[in-house]
Amino acid sequence: MSWSKLKQQLESFLSPALSGRVEYRSTSYRYLPDKAGLCYIAVDKKNVFNMSDASTSIRWYQTEQEIKNDPQLQIPISKEELDAVRADTKGLVPEERLKVIARGRKIGELAKELLSAQTALSKSNFVAVANKFLSLSIEESIESKDILLNILALIDRRVGKKRIQNMSGKIKLKHPVVQYFYELRLSTM
């Protein structure tokens, strides 16, 4: 599918409140046929979704330690996770320390997931993922570990106000760029 046709289809699924604010852009290299063009998402004429751009306000993690030490990252801990740590330590650890251990475990898992998602994204082809989005259901796109699928689903008109508001817990565990588009969509409601 040509870029113009794909762009037209993606824009037809944009939420009405974001129409005109969110744009899909592409650059191509006319004289380098083996070099793929870059595709990115702009919000209010500012490139937001472009990993290689150093001027972007979205944080792209380089190491697992950066994720673990990020003070803005909020990790909700469930009662089941606390109970699992309590069972592993056989009840010998104070209650405050259980929360620290559970958070440490969860943030370690999250760091690995975020880095692998970022790595997959940097190697992926925007056009291929966008075509996949057009053939998947919204639920599959939202639940996917693919950052780009999450973004495309969040700004889709088929995702309603109630569903967006109910996603706040899940979004905290996603990449900062997904959180950015969630906040953008939430601000238009």
Rank of each mutant, 00 (worst) to 15 (best):
residue 1 M to W: 10
residue 2 S to K: 15
residue 3 W to R: 06
residue 12 S to K: 13
residue 12 S to M: 11
residue 13 F to I: 02
residue 14 L to F: 00
residue 17 A to P: 01
residue 19 S to Q: 13
residue 19 S to P: 03
residue 20 G to S: 11
residue 20 G to W: 02
residue 23 E to S: 02
residue 24 Y to P: 12
residue 25 R to G: 06
residue 33 P to E: 01
residue 36 A to R: 15
residue 36 A to W: 15
residue 36 A to T: 13
residue 36 A to V: 13
residue 42 A to Q: 06
residue 43 V to F: 01
residue 43 V to I: 02
residue 45 K to Q: 13
residue 45 K to I: 03
residue 45 K to H: 11
residue 49 F to Y: 00
residue 52 S to G: 12
residue 52 S to Y: 14
residue 54 A to K: 15
residue 54 A to T: 12
residue 56 T to Y: 06
residue 58 I to M: 06
residue 59 R to S: 03
residue 60 W to D: 00
residue 60 W to Q: 04
residue 61 Y to L: 10
residue 61 Y to D: 11
residue 62 Q to I: 14
residue 63 T to I: 07
residue 64 E to D: 14
residue 65 Q to H: 04
residue 66 E to C: 02
residue 69 N to I: 10
residue 70 D to H: 05
residue 72 Q to A: 13
residue 72 Q to P: 02
residue 73 L to R: 08
residue 76 P to S: 07
residue 78 S to R: 08
residue 79 K to G: 09
residue 81 E to G: 09
residue 81 E to W: 12
residue 83 D to M: 13
residue 83 D to V: 10
residue 83 D to R: 02
residue 84 A to L: 09
residue 84 A to R: 13
residue 86 R to H: 15
residue 87 A to W: 07
residue 88 D to F: 13
residue 90 K to I: 09
residue 92 L to H: 09
residue 94 P to G: 11
residue 97 R to I: 15
residue 98 L to K: 06
residue 98 L to S: 08
residue 100 V to E: 13
residue 100 V to C: 04
residue 100 V to S: 06
residue 101 I to S: 07
residue 102 A to I: 01
residue 104 G to Q: 00
residue 105 R to F: 07
residue 107 I to T: 02
residue 108 G to I: 14
residue 109 E to N: 13
residue 110 L to A: 12
residue 114 L to F: 05
residue 115 L to M: 10
residue 115 L to D: 11
residue 116 S to M: 00
residue 116 S to Y: 05
residue 122 S to N: 14
residue 123 K to L: 03
residue 124 S to T: 02
residue 125 N to M: 12
residue 125 N to C: 11
residue 126 F to L: 05
residue 129 V to N: 10
residue 135 S to W: 08
residue 135 S to I: 12
residue 137 S to H: 04
residue 139 E to S: 05
residue 142 I to L: 06
residue 143 E to H: 08
residue 146 D to I: 08
residue 146 D to G: 04
residue 147 I to E: 01
residue 147 I to Y: 00
residue 148 L to W: 02
residue 148 L to D: 07
residue 150 N to W: 03
residue 151 I to Q: 11
residue 151 I to A: 01
residue 151 I to M: 04
residue 152 L to T: 04
residue 159 V to I: 07
residue 160 G to C: 01
residue 162 K to P: 01
residue 167 M to N: 11
residue 168 S to H: 15
residue 169 G to L: 14
residue 171 I to D: 01
residue 171 I to T: 07
residue 172 K to Q: 08
residue 172 K to P: 11
residue 173 L to W: 07
residue 174 K to E: 04
residue 176 P to E: 00
residue 178 V to W: 03
residue 180 Y to M: 06
residue 180 Y to Q: 08
residue 180 Y to P: 04
residue 183 E to T: 10
residue 184 L to P: 06
residue 184 L to H: 01
residue 187 S to A: 02
residue 187 S to Q: 08
residue 188 T to D: 10
residue 189 M to G: 03
residue 189 M to L: 12
